[in-house]
Design a protein around this nucleic acid. Structure first.
Lengths: 208, 208
DNA sequence: AAATATATTGAACACTGTTCAATTTACAAA
DNA sequence: TTTGTAAATTGAACAGTGTTCAATATATTT
């Protein structure tokens, strides 16, 4: 009896339809301008259908967050996984992070800036799963740098990973929220990447 | 004839009434839950009155931003201005920044995260004025650290200031958006401040 | 073919930002 | 003091929002 399976597939197909339409509108017009009616109209369903698949708009947002995380952050780590030198890999990961963040500001906002209310603990754990995996890869990379002799052995990978993450997140979000306009830099992106390289030098020097 | 002056005072009084009510609701319920009708009802005026003082809700947001900036960021720099040692002052400024950011998340969001559309160039310049002043104080502090021999003389205050700012902004916004939940730290705030102190050590060591 | 279960609808509710003609209020001139 | 004028203020109306839910259509089982 593959009927129930087929039914479930059909349900999931509609759910995916909603998610994809939501994501498209979200990327094009931002979260606040992504309305239930717009999504429904895009997939040629009535507004009510969305509430058969998601508790509310926030729940839909959570699903989008998870999808974006799965797709992009893991891809980032994969793209540098073949670099043998751990320090170079660490540096490249940061560069990739920044590049992705400024190239996909809406996606980035979805993953790291937007506040989603999440009452259920199950939802909470699912929400953090992919993020935790990414942080673990980062910490593992830091440990490899310690093994390889780039970093001292008495540093704390937890603290260093937060410093690294805060730095790139800070750069990306200041850039994306146009707060770098305060600097009279001719090319803001270039200025930002230059600062990141200086930061990398500082890391290398001070953790040796 | 002080009549026009009095009229203007009365106009400004209403404007202040709006701004204060807006700020109160904003801090209590967040930007999205701050409606024109709520503000108007709080000050016992009709909704329309707000449009006699502000072009639209975004314009009101801009005014709130400017006010928050004036009040808080300058106060931060004032509070450490009597510290004679430039490096200590630099470090304390960062600590104060983080503390303010996590103690006043709504205010912080208003100043550094919220996107306000701003077409008029005049608006733009006014918007960045206070921020630019703060960055200049930061850069001046860095230069003093160079003079005092704490930092090498071949560093670029622009780049270093962005690194410092990105770091503390990154910490605050990851914390406030609850993204630090990924870390299994017993006390997230303490963990964050510890990371900041490690970062300060790195700065000191690598720029010497 | 009838009964059942599920998917889907679309109207309705209570909200939102914004506009604008109508009104009230406050002051100046006659 | 009355009239004229300019400004402040109103509140209804418009078009939009998220959300709910009884009604309906569709598909499967008996």
């Amino acid at each position: 009896m593959g009927i129930n399976e087929r039914k479930e597939r059909e349900r999931d197909a509609v759910k995916d339809l909603i998610l994809n339409a939501a994501r498209e509108i979200f990327l094009a017009e931002g979260y606040e301008n992504t309305s239930i009616r717009k999504i429904a109209s895009k997939i040629e369903y009535s507004p009510g259908i969305i509430y058969n698949h998601f508790k509310d708009k926030n729940d839909l947002l959570l699903a989008l967050h998870d999808k974006a995380f799965e797709c992009k952050i893991e891809a980032l780590f994969m793209s540098v996984q073949n670099m043998p030198d751990p320090l170079e890999r660490l540096q490249a990961t940061g560069r990739g992070y920044i590049q992705y963040g400024i190239d996909n500001p809406q996606d980035y906002e979805l993953m790291f800036i937007l506040s989603c209310t999440m009452e259920a603990l199950a939802v909470k754990e699912e929400f953090w799963q992919d993020g935790a995996a990414a942080i673990n890869m980062l910490k593992e990379n830091i440990r490899e740098c310690m093994e390889a002799g780039y970093f001292r052995k008495d540093i704390n990978p937890d603290e260093i990973s937060l410093i690294l993450w805060s730095q790139v997140h800070g750069l990306v979000s200041l850039h994306n929220k146009e707060r770098l306009n305060i600097y009279a830099a001719e090319d803001q992106k270039a200025f930002m990447f230059r600062a990141y390289e200086v930061f990398l030098d500082m890391i290398k020097k001070s953790l040796a």
